[in-house]
Design a protein around this nucleic acid. Structure first.
Ligand SMILES: [Mn+2]
Ligand SMILES: [Mn+2]
Ligand SMILES: [Zn+2]
Ligand SMILES: [Zn+2]
Lengths: 143, 143
DNA sequence: GTGTTTAATGCTAACCATTTGCATTTAGAC
DNA sequence: GTCTAAATGCAAATGGTTAGCATTAAACAC
């Protein structure tokens, strides 16, 4: 995967095997992952990685905007995904944690309107939808 | 404040002095408060309250929908406010933590449209705006 | 390739918001 | 007033995350 190591180059981060591995796992995964999820998956390829390394890698990735973070619902852990090119939002299944990525944003106009009304300089917003994916809706009916 | 003790009655919670006090502080405050914020304020009226009591009270309030919770940005602590009658959103100042409460929701139609498009049963959403309030915009210019 | 420099890593202990166990107190019902 | 279950205080435990420090490895010059 040339593309993956390119990202580190562009971000001015050393290409270590652990960084490449975490990046690969993130690239292969559609859903949000916690640091521990990533640690467990990484150990399957490389038994000699430590959890603090995973945290430090994720911190460096977040700083360089390679990943973006999310607090799923009110859980106390942080979840990570590969950052999107464009601003995006998510439908998150409360049952299976699967994620649908929504590439458009319905509130740009609303946001600039808010800015004027309240003289508040909006820097960013969070918008996430929680509910049940089609798969989980079905299995709930059957139980 | 009759209104306050009414809320406990309706929720079927015992009217203890600590619960009434926490409720009073929440009612007087416009912004979100952490458990520790509430603990500090409560101690000013009642030196004999413990932090775990504050947590337990907040848990009971959250369960009865007397308060609603928020994870401000990516901080690891939970913030609480008196729950709104109707669904609401917020403008949160990244500098002074002040909050503007927005009583309308711009995405109801969008949400039902999403539901159909993705066959995803949306149960709730979070929408919060982060930026700088008018006061903090000014003080940044002056510095 | 070797050597040098500096950032990355592993391991362990610390941190800090939150939760829990348990003995004691108190609200609400009688 | 008595009684009972729920609420509380205190201390210890939990769990995700961060920090300290000695060791290793990328990147770069030669
Ligand atoms: Mn996404
Ligand atoms: Mn509010
Ligand atoms: Zn699902
Ligand atoms: Zn402000």
């Amino acid at each position: 995967m040339k593309k993956i190591s390119m990202q580190l180059e562009k971000a001015n981060l050393k290409k270590t095997k652990h960084r490449l591995l975490i990046l690969k796992i993130l690239a292969e995964t559609n859903d949000f992952l916690s640091a521990d999820d990533l640690f467990i998956r990484a150990k399957q390829s490389d038994t000699k990685i430590s959890l603090s390394t995973v945290y430090r890698i994720l911190d460096s990735f977040a700083e360089k905007k390679i990943v973006s973070t999310l607090n799923i619902d009110n859980s106390k852990q942080v979840y990570y995904e590969m950052a999107h090119q464009e601003h995006a939002h998510h439908l998150i299944c409360l049952d299976c944690q699967s994620v649908i990525h929504i590439k458009d944003c319905p509130i740009h106009d609303y946001q600039s309107q808010l800015s004027k009304t309240y003289n508040f300089q909006v820097k960013r917003h969070s918008l996430e939808f929680y509910g049940y994916c089609s798969k989980c809706q079905k299995s709930k009916k059957n139980q």
